[in-house]
């Protein structure tokens, strides 16, 4: 609780002000009830939009994964059009790792572009 009186002088002053303290306490307790009058509704309108829940989020993640696989597949087709389709995605992934191991900035830009495109697509899907 309160520690208003930390010296004798304070205590003496507090005694003199007892009526004022009592008045302030009564004032605090007797505050009239204010009618809501649409206040709660206004507050609710200022709240941020509802959070997305698990199932939608997981669905978005699956979509991003599928899109990523499709992009890798198409990239593989462009690089090695003669290979079998089933091997192409794996090849693209192997190529990505090879690029990462043999890191050179000029090789990174196409992959960065693809990741950015994936990110934007995923964000747009999640927003929907």
């Amino acid at each position: 609780m309160n520690s208003h009186s930390d010296s004798r002088a304070d205590t003496h002053r507090d005694d003199e002000d007892a009526w004022l303290r009592q008045l302030l306490r009564e004032d605090g307790e007797q505050a009239p009830h204010l009618d809501d009058a649409g206040f709660t509704m206004q507050v609710l309108q200022t709240l941020p939009p509802p959070r997305d829940h698990g199932p939608d989020w997981i669905g978005g993640l699956v979509m991003i994964g599928m899109l990523g696989f499709a992009l890798l597949f198409v990239t593989g087709l462009l690089v090695h059009p003669a290979d079998h389709a089933a091997e192409l995605a794996g090849h693209a992934v192997r190529q990505l790792f090879a690029h990462l191991l043999d890191f050179r900035l000029d090789q990174l830009w196409p992959w960065l572009g693809m990741l950015l495109a994936l990110g934007f697509t995923g964000t747009a899907l999640l927003d929907d």
């Binding site: 505050a31 809501d36 206040f39 609710l44």
Partner: peptide, 18 residues
Amino acid sequence: DRMAFAALVRRHQSAVRS
């Protein structure tokens, strides 16, 4: 739960506004 938050606001709005 927005309805639960609305109930909290309704309950405490008078004291806070006062």
